[in-house]
């Protein structure tokens, strides 16, 4: 193959790897929003925190696989605590519609708090997480080479996506969750324990962000600013894909990943303006997003 074709394919896979990571973060984001109406600004901070947890676990045990297992669970635990102790507390105030403002501000506070706490605990120097020996090298195919670790990220995300799809669409639990996402009040009336489902979904969403964080750690260095770009990107995904739509989040994540990769190739420096402009356009013309069913 000639150099141009190799480059185009490589860029395509780069885009896929980032898009997949983005989807892992954004899917939790959109699930939580669709279900509870909470725009969790701190969501990407959980992604960043997971990367630090992975770093810390690897410092102690040296095993990446242990980190991949434990860090997301710890993050999900924190997410559940946040939902139980904080978000639920706000709902107790019976603030009516203004509850939206308070929830948004709470998540802003948590976002700043996580970032600052990380800086105080681990410092601002970037930390390096090594991929396990098994995933380090390069893989050869069709006369081109590509890092194994990025292929692993794509594979991992695909399996998580598959698992998520199976749970959501093939199990009773999934039915309950989807019902609660569609209409929490009605689900409650039908005897579903909605508060429990809320906690579950919040835990699941943060767990997904945690997986993405651990997976991203060896690919990027771990530093406190990791959350910023991810937050903006997942905002775009959720706004464009439609609030609460998993399918929309998937499509837009992939598009955004590719756009980032090829944008660097063909029109560097203008990606931000294009992306946010497009987001503003969609939000005004179709506030429910491209794939959203409800606001």
């Amino acid at each position: 193959m000639d150099a141009i074709a190799v480059m185009l394919i490589t860029q395509g896979i780069h885009g896929l790897a980032y898009g997949m990571l983005l989807f892992l973060v954004a899917s939790g984001f959109t699930l939580i929003f669709g279900m509870m109406g909470i725009l969790n600004i701190a969501h990407a901070s959980f992604f960043m925190l997971a990367a630090y947890f992975a770093f810390q676990i690897m410092q102690w045990s040296g095993s990446f696989w242990l980190a991949l297992l434990l860090a997301p669970i710890a993050i999900a635990g924190l997410g559940i605590l946040m939902e139980r102790l904080m978000l639920r507390q706000i709902r107790k105030f019976k603030l009516g519609k203004a509850v939206v403002l308070f929830e948004l501000m709470l998540t802003v506070g948590i976002m700043v708090c996580i970032e600052e706490a990380v800086k105080n605990l681990w410092g601002t120097d970037p930390e390096i997480v090594n991929a396990p020996e098994l995933l380090r090298g390069l893989v050869q195919f069709f006369g081109m080479t590509y890092p194994v670790y990025r292929i692993f990220i794509i594979g991992l995300s695909c399996s998580i996506l598959l698992l998520l799809g199976l749970i959501l669409f093939k199990t009773r639990l999934g039915n309950v969750v989807r019902a609660a996402v569609q209409d929490a009040d009605m689900a409650g009336a039908l005897g579903v324990n909605v508060p429990l489902v809320f906690t579950l979904v919040f835990g699941l969403g943060t767990w997904l962000a945690g997986i993405a964080g651990v997976a991203a750690a060896p690919m990027l260095t771990v530093f406190p600013g990791l959350a910023n770009q991810m937050m903006l990107d997942s905002f775009i995904v959720v706004a464009l894909g439609g609030f609460g739509s998993l399918f929309g989040a998937f499509v837009i994540s992939m598009l955004l990943g590719e756009l980032t990769a090829f944008g660097i190739q063909f029109f560097p420096g203008y990606s931000t303006i294009i992306l946010f402009g497009f987001m503003a356009l969609v939000l005004t013309i179709r506030p429910s997003g491209l794939f959203g069913e409800k606001e």
């Binding site: 150099a3 480059m7 780069h14 980032y18 120097d125 600013g225 090829f262 190739q265």
Partner: peptide, 28 residues
């Protein structure tokens, strides 16, 4: 600044046939 993923940039560099990258970057 504070870019996440350099891979797409590097694929571009690779395709250009460069022998040396000159960069002003500082950590991270």
């Amino acid at each position: 600044l504070w870019l996440k993923d350099f891979a797409p940039y590097l694929s571009k560099v690779q395709a250009s046939g460069a022998e040396m990258i000159i960069s002003s970057d500082w950590p991270p």
